[in-house]
């Protein structure tokens, strides 16, 4: 009986707090947050879809989009989802060195994507597409900009997580912390899957 009690206490310490459903509170909160993020991006995507044809001044979407370049960016972000899931898998195996390696690669791929977006925005601006040039440009920069900020926040979280793991400062379930950040990262990826198709591939 005493053994069972010790086991239960250890388990509770290792895996954090759980709700009455038996599920992790942290994971429940993260999924709730991601559900609410769907609404944020839903609003931004609908605004873009409504205004993408409204080009009074400045270049038209088809004149400025560089599909080969954006395709490579999309591929980079997609592959970062693979490296993230491999980091989560390593964390479940309690392999800290591999977890950190995959987190580093994921962060670098994310930073490459953000760098590509900065390059794209700069190019568009030089071609005459400012934030207030047209309804299309405002909605385009708002949507892709918000997504870029999410990726940047994700990169910061990944780098911070690496530092925390190295210093051994995670109390409780380390794999769950990696998984939670992984959920956020994959969400950012699925939002880009939608943006890439609706914004770049389907002509206005």
């Amino acid at each position: 009986m005493a053994d069972i009690a010790t086991h239960d206490t250890d388990h509770a310490t290792d895996h954090g707090h759980h709700s009455s459903t038996g599920l992790s509170n942290n994971k429940l909160a993260m999924w709730l947050f991601l559900g609410s993020e769907c609404l944020l991006f839903g609003g931004l995507i609908s605004t873009y879809m409504l205004y993408r044809g409204r080009v009074q001044n400045g270049p038209h979407p088809s004149q400025i989009y560089d599909i080969p370049f954006t395709s490579v960016s999309s591929f980079v972000l997609l592959m970062s989802s693979l490296t993230m899931v491999l980091a989560v898998s390593s964390a479940h195996r309690k392999d800290d060195s591999k977890t950190n390696l995959w987190l580093l690669i994921t962060g670098l791929l994310g930073a490459t994507f953000v760098g590509g977006q900065v390059y794209e925005f700069t190019t568009f601006y030089r071609e005459g597409l400012g934030f207030t040039t047209s309804l299309f440009s405002s909605s385009f920069y708002s949507l892709t900009g918000f997504h870029g900020v999410h990726v940047s926040v994700g990169v910061i979280m990944l780098m911070s997580l690496m530092g925390i793991i190295k210093k051994g400062k995670i109390t409780g379930d380390k794999a769950e912390v990696v998984e939670l950040i992984g959920l956020y990262w994959h969400f950012v990826d699925v939002v880009w899957i939608i943006i890439f198709t609706l914004v770049y591939l389907i002509p206005s």
């Binding site: 459903t21 994971k27 429940l28 999924w31 991601l34 559900g35 769907c38 609404l39 839903g42 609003g43």
Partner: peptide, 15 residues
């Protein structure tokens, strides 16, 4: 758990 699916897909459905 299906509860996670419910939370996410409810948000997506609303969006």
């Amino acid at each position: 758990s299906k509860i996670f699916s419910f939370l996410f897909y409810t948000g997506l459905g609303l969006a």
